[in-house]
């Protein structure tokens, strides 16, 4: 599982930092390194660009996993440079931004947009496969999630927008229900395409989602 991110347009980052001139940069050694959005290289490039704008970069760090509790330790170790800064620019996913915000009483600015939680099918090729809906139907859909892989999240078969196995919104995208149909057919389980699936419960865990494992 990886948090897939994309760097914000630089002018948006610049805007967010408009009145903030002393910046400490935080990268992440896990997902954002893998997606090349917040690893060492990207952090150093950001440092140069910010300096090019006349900002002072008081320091930088690539935390091994920005979203976990070790972030607090990393922050204590870099306390001086952080105290010198008047803002923290986080090059991690929103989970990292959230974590950093817990420890700092200064503006925490995201440099990335978090796109989805996905997997890497092949190097550099990331896919969303689960929408974390809380009501898994994969057992009936041959392991392909219609909530996630169908653009419209349809539960009872393909819409009329499918064409030669592709999706109406993008000719490069596979139609999830055509894939599900093909796999179920191979497995001799097409009867599952005929099974009625009632309207989904969108409140399995109402937002904000919380789980306490005891």
């Amino acid at each position: 599982m990886k948090s897939i991110t994309r760097q914000k347009p630089f002018n948006e980052i610049e805007q967010q930092l408009e009145d903030l001139d002393r910046i400490f940069i935080v990268g992440c050694g896990t997902c954002a390194t893998m997606t090349r959005t917040g690893g060492r290289e990207e952090v150093l490039e950001m440092k140069n660009r910010l300096q090019g704008l006349g900002k002072m970069v008081t320091g930088w760090i690539v935390i091994p996993t920005a979203c976990d509790e070790m972030t607090e330790v990393a922050f204590r170790e870099n306390n001086g440079a952080i105290q010198d800064a008047n803002s923290i620019l986080v090059m991690a996913c929103a989970l990292g931004v959230h974590r950093v915000s817990l420890y700092i009483g200064k503006p925490v600015i995201p440099a990335l947009d978090t796109l989805f939680i996905g997997i890497e099918d092949s190097p550099g090729d990331f896919h969303e496969v689960c929408a974390q809906c809380g009501q898994c139907v994969l057992g009936e859909t041959a392991g392909i999630c219609p909530i996630t892989a169908c653009h419209k999240g349809l539960l009872n078969g393909p819409c009329g927008g499918t064409n030669n196995g592709k999706c109406e919104v993008d000719k490069e995208k596979d139609c999830a229900w055509t894939l599900i149909y093909q796999r179920l057919k191979e497995q001799g389980r097409l009867d599952l395409m005929r099974k009625y699936r009632p309207p989904k419960n969108f409140q399995v865990v109402p937002r904000p989602k919380v789980a306490r494992i005891v």
């Binding site: 009872n156 009329g160 149909y181 009625y196």
Partner: peptide, 22 residues
């Protein structure tokens, strides 16, 4: 509605039957 010229046709026909059933 139904799309008689969809390719592949079988998933559309199954959905057609699901609509009849509904």
């Amino acid at each position: 509605i139904v799309t008689p010229e969809a390719r592949p046709i079988e998933p559309q026909l199954i959905k057609f039957e699901n609509k009849v059933e509904a």
